[in-house]
């Protein structure tokens, strides 16, 4: 039985051009946004968008479905919160601690998980991240059920920029978010990224071409984990706390949903998906309707009729129009 691989549309040149235009527009919007919209909400959106982009680096461009990315996101939130609050480190170093911690965690989990493929890979990452969750419940430095509360945001560049000012924090998050997205874009479009895609399309052929596929997979896993850690560390500073919520398997599911909804293997898809999911959660938080049911329903609908995601479907539509016109 032959099966179609994960459906993506990223390679088309038309997709790239639209992405560039949209990103330009989005950038202008993001620069002006905090004057019109509640900055914390926007920062939350950017943290999750970066998280989803990091996740997509693995699923969309390497074809590996990790069901345990919450470990890196939530783990980094703990590391950063601890470094800033207990060790008294400045925020930029604190985030770096979070990123490094997530990368080390990614190295360990990735090393074990890449020993199996496909569906087993998903189950192993899920199980290992659940193990990390239990570790976080019991470890003394995470504060158990309470989490780490009252994390100071501190000041950037040795006291130059005070992050307790909401707008300063916002532009700091925006800069980190953009750097993260650009880094992912660079990775995806580098020769390294091409090899990752070849692994996604046909792993055996990549092996026969002489690539040490396992090393590439592990490399992609660690990079994805580190970038997810960047998002997690940032979130800890924005909300000034780190809790167990961010290391649960539900969180791992959430980032899959964002990526799937927006479009697996598209650069802006995960950003769109994260925006929709975070907005939806905010809207449902005040209503009676449980978030889990909404999340589950979107999952089922996406998988059944919408596998390319919103952005992917738009690209496919434009492609059809173009080929019909020629």
């Amino acid at each position: 039985m032959s099966r179609a691989a994960i459906e993506t549309t990223a390679e088309k040149p038309v997709a790239l051009r639209i992405e560039t235009i949209l990103l330009g527009l989005a950038l202008v919007g993001l620069l002006a946004a905090p004057f019109f919209i509640y900055p914390i909400f926007l920062m939350k959106m950017m943290c999750f968008a970066l998280f989803a982009c990091a996740f997509n680096l693995l699923l969309g461009y390497t074809g590996l479905l990790s069901f345990g990315h919450a470990a890196f996101f939530g783990g980094a939130a703990y590391f950063t919160a601890h470094a800033v609050k207990v060790w008294g480190l400045p925020p930029e170093i604190g985030i770096l601690v979070g990123v490094l911690g997530a990368a080390v965690l990614g190295l360990v989990i990735g090393f074990l998980a890449i020993r199996r493929q496909g569906i087993y890979f998903a189950m192993i990452t899920l199980a290992l991240s659940q193990m990390f969750f239990f570790f976080c419940v019991q470890a003394p430095f995470t504060g158990g059920e309470d989490g780490i509360q009252g994390v100071p945001r501190g000041t950037l560049l040795g006291g130059l920029i005070d992050l307790h000012n909401e707008h300063n924090m916002y532009y700091f998050v925006l800069v980190v978010f953009l750097l993260g997205v650009v880094a992912i874009w660079r990775i995806v479009n580098s020769p390294y990224g091409m090899i990752l895609r070849s692994i996604r399309e046909n792993e055996n052929r990549a092996i026969s071409l002489g690539y040490s596929v396992q090393n590439y997979k592990l490399g992609a896993f660690v990079m994805s984990a580190a970038l997810a850690g960047l998002a997690g560390g940032l979130k800890a500073l924005v909300f000034q706390f780190a809790t167990l919520t961010d290391v649960t398997w539900q969180m791992s599911g959430e980032v899959i949903l964002m990526t799937l909804l927006g479009g697996i293997g598209t650069l802006i898809g995960p950003i769109v998906g994260a925006g929709i999911v975070v907005t939806l959660q905010n809207a449902l938080a005040t209503s009676e309707f449980p978030v889990t049911i909404a999340t589950g329903l979107i999952f089922m609908i996406c998988v059944l009729i919408f596998r390319r995601g919103i952005v992917g479907e738009i690209y496919a539509y434009i492609d059809r129009r173009k080929s019909a016109g020629n």
């Binding site: 496909g118 569906i119 998903a122 049911i293 089922m300």
Partner: peptide, 24 residues
């Protein structure tokens, strides 16, 4: 409807189903 696409979609579908059942 999911037998001819990547097996991961089956996992994702049943994950969504589990969330809905539990949510209810």
């Amino acid at each position: 409807r999911l037998y001819d696409v990547d097996p991961l979609y089956g996992l994702l579908f049943t994950f969504g189903l589990a969330l809905v059942i539990e949510g209810v």
